[in-house]
């Protein structure tokens, strides 16, 4: 009897996780059905792109700048010890473009845009605004979810490309200041060693991460119950689930994409 409680708790956890994963997967299928052919509110898409993409630019640029600087500071000891100054551009580029950039920008994006979306849809849900849309014969998935899904993917891909560029520029500047690696050495080692596939991997990962953030935030937002505290719970779950899913997908995509 003593063992039954932990077993029951694990079981409950698994059932809850399955239910939420199933719910999110079902939402993804519904989004897919409305994307072919595209059924979405274009003005809502424009609003989402502006709010999620353009208005996130400053935070992503700031993060990217710091990432580039930290990367060089961390690498300084080893580059100096082994005399790898000529390889600094490649090292910084490889780490930023393939791994650090997409994952860090996705986490920042999740914290800013994903949390906002979960709170926005959650508030709409608990104040009957979503039902209000249904009563106006407006499909909430087409009107609310699909534009956010498309906007988050497009915005995160663009932000990751810009963020990668900013991180590399800041790394090159920091490399020159800290290790006296001139710009030509930095950029020539980067362009010689990095392939288009590396950049494609970055774009591919960020598109995937954008889709994950969109589905989880919209799912938890639309599944909100219980008034204002429920909105807080939805935001919390959305951010945690997005982060966990980003790491899991990153693990598998790194395996698959090499």
């Amino acid at each position: 009897m003593g063992l039954s409680t932990p077993v029951r708790q694990v079981g409950r956890l698994l059932v809850g996780a399955s239910r939420e994963t199933g719910g999110a997967a079902r939402l993804l299928v519904q989004i897919g059905k409305r994307l072919v052919p595209p059924q979405m509110d274009r003005s809502e898409l424009r609003r989402c792109l502006l709010r999620m993409g353009y208005k996130s630019l400053s935070i992503i640029v700031a993060t990217a700048f710091v990432v580039g600087v930290i990367l060089v500071i961390q690498a300084f000891v080893f580059v100096d010890r082994y005399g790898l100054r000529s390889q600094l551009g490649w090292g910084a580029g490889f780490v930023t473009v393939r791994e650090l950039g997409p994952i860090l920008f996705a986490l920042m994006f999740s914290g800013r845009v994903g949390a906002y979306t979960a709170a926005e849809l959650g508030t709409m849900q608990v104040t009957d605004q979503v039902d209000g849309l249904r009563c106006l014969a407006i499909d909430p998935i087409s009107y609310l979810v699909v534009p956010r899904f498309v906007a988050m993917i497009v915005a995160l891909v663009c932000l990751t490309v810009i963020g990668n560029a900013v991180a590399l520029v800041s790394a090159s500047v920091m490399g020159q200041i800290l290790m006296e690696v001139d710009q030509h050495t930095f950029w020539s080692s980067l362009t010689a060693m990095l392939t288009p596939w590396d950049f494609f991997t970055s774009v591919f990962k960020s598109a995937f991460f954008g889709a994950i953030i969109a589905v989880t935030s919209c799912y938890y937002g639309l599944a909100t119950t219980g008034g204002a505290p429920g909105v807080g719970r939805a935001v919390n779950r959305s951010v945690v689930a997005s982060a966990a899913a980003i790491f899991v997908v990153d693990y598998f995509s790194t395996f698959v994409l090499g």
Partner: peptide
């Protein structure tokens, strides 16, 4: 149908 919700549901 026109529906008025208890908590207004205004956008």
């Amino acid at each position: 149908c026109g529906v008025q919700f208890q908590n207004d549901a205004l956008f």
